[in-house]
Design a protein around this nucleic acid. Structure first.
Lengths: 337, 337
DNA sequence: TTGTAAGCGTTATCAT
DNA sequence: ATGATAACGCTTACAA
């Protein structure tokens, strides 16, 4: 029992495969209603399904875009990808995903993916600059939260200004010793937050630390690094964490050391992950438009896929300061949206 | 400037496309090393990339599997999909994702996806029984956390026994009025947890409520429903929540009503999402092997894709009771893994 | 070891 | 409105 093809259906219905194609695959081509009915019935009868590969080959369109990211832990990537997928679906594109899991052969992975899609969305540092360059020369590529490379389009959330605003808010609470916990080297986003943080301190006449307290984007790391920082002889009175996950770890560390948050030490995060407002104290943070980042990337990709390659304007989406209680502000009665 | 094909490369290298195919696409077919070098160089020179659609058509293999889920909010789906993707990658399959977003035309979505993949992984109630039946007749299908349908394989995490154990634990703390907050109708998983909860209460000689306190798998809903439940004249002293997200909402509601957790009311969740141990009090819950669910699904699918369709044994993965403080147990010194 | 050529299952052009 | 038929770009016997 072989897989039925259009010929199977055509035979069954007594028409040509052209007609079958017109009713099953077609975009409303002219087919008599009665004929169409017959074809539809035959297709059902023989259990026919279109073959995506054959269509893709004939149309020169995969009808799919690929997205490459490091992993799916934490709400960040999932949020962006969800927005991406929804937008792509609307645009009639399927979405192929590939996680690098920090593998060294990520370039091969991306390269393989590129073989099956009309365009690529690459997160942060998932592919080497060389690979990005190579790919961008051959197909539409949009970079998410990564510095521009070659002809690829870049989409990102605003970081520097809002980081400044957040640091400034902390200064407004009277803090002068504010630590930055995160790793500017690991991601462009973190680098910009670090820059904005420094801007604000300098503007306030406070000398920022020479270097950040390096910390990966994970709770466990936040817990460890914050523990170290808080145990110093003259510890900071505020912790500017580069992500909510880091901040959560930091809160736990503070509690373990018997420091009250925000009484003894104020703590802020970044991302506004869903649980941020359920922590105690609710976390002051900066919200990124995750789904929009993804949706925007999909839309930009689609334009390039359909049309000519226009000059690539980097896109920056606005972020929003979300003030809750962990910075020292009085807690609201109900969880702040 | 058209996209180069194998002919382009073949010309450039002065060989036939068969040779090009052997070195670029091939699985170590016999090609003289020098020839291979020449082909590789030419491919690079003309900027050639394999065409996935053409390969798929020629080999009768898409080299991809599809996974359909409701959404990506919360850590559950992301966790499973991550495991799925990693396993698929190892097996040399790409993964196509599609979220139904609760749309009514989910069947069309799935049907379209099926056109581009060698096999399908379907979460919960994402496709109608009829569609599952139809698909399973034509291609390998594995169902995740969904009751068995037709010839599809089913993979799920154990629910009933561990739900019983958890309810039993609550009873052990002296509770006799324990509410179940969740929606057994919405998912097979929830239904089994509800059943296990009833088992345990009956075993303890407690009469379970006739019906659960219906609540969708979302914080906001948990907040709302728990608020209602706790305001009753003779409120329960423990809340058995069908997910951690519900439990988080419930905790917030309890706090707002001035009830101490677990002093006035014990609360338990399900899933052991990463933040569960950072809540205050740390949440007692049941851990599901998310990544393993996905990996197992991918592996089972692969077997069916490669080989003959063997009889489908449902697979059930073990879960683990994670006792922390929200049930009334004394809190550990450090966050419990 | 390398080349020739026949598919793979569609779409789309051109007749009819 | 429908039918022939030539691509689409690759893999893979089969020859050489």
């Amino acid at each position: 029992m072989v897989r039925p093809t259009m010929y199977t259906v055509a035979n069954h219905a007594g028409v040509s495969i052209a007609t079958v194609s017109r009713v099953l695959g077609g975009r409303g081509a002219a087919v008599r209603a009665r004929t169409a009915q017959r074809v539809l019935a035959s297709a059902r009868a023989v259990g026919y399904r279109l073959n995506g590969a054959a269509r893709a080959l004939a149309t020169q369109r995969h009808g799919a875009i690929g997205v490459v990211f490091p992993n799916l832990s934490g709400p960040y990537y999932g949020g962006v990808i969800l927005g991406l997928e929804e937008a792509a679906q609307t645009l009639g594109q399927s979405v192929l995903i590939a996680a690098t899991h920090g593998r060294p052969d990520a370039d091969d992975l991306v390269s393989g993916l590129a073989t099956k899609v009309d365009g690529l969305v690459l997160f942060g540092r998932t592919a080497s600059d060389g690979m990005v360059q190579e790919l961008a020369a051959a197909m539409p590529v949009v970079l998410l939260a990564r510095p521009q490379v070659a002809s690829a389009i870049t989409v990102r959330a605003e970081n520097r200004t809002s980081a400044g605003a957040l640091a400034c808010h902390l200064v407004g609470h009277g803090h002068t010793r504010i630590a930055f916990i995160g790793d500017p080297m690991s991601s462009p986003d973190a680098a910009e937050r670090w820059a904005g943080y420094q801007d604000a301190l300098r503007d306030a006449g406070i000398r920022p630390p020479r270097a950040p307290d390096t910390c990966a984007f994970r709770e466990a790391e936040g817990h460890r690094v914050a523990g170290l920082v808080l145990r110093r002889s003259r510890p900071p009175t505020a912790l500017f964490c580069a992500s909510d996950e880091i901040a959560m770890g930091a809160c736990a560390a503070a509690v373990e050391l018997g420091r009250a948050v925000p009484g003894d030490v104020a703590i802020t995060g970044w991302d506004d992950i869903p649980v941020a407002r359920f922590l105690s104290p609710p976390l002051t943070t900066v919200r990124q438009p995750l789904a929009q980042l993804g949706a925007r990337a999909a839309a930009l990709l689609q334009v390039r896929i359909d049309g000519v390659a226009e000059p690539a304007e980097p896109v920056t989406l606005a972020t929003e300061l979300v003030v809750r209680a962990s910075c020292g502000c009085p807690p609201g009665q109900r969880p702040t949206a």
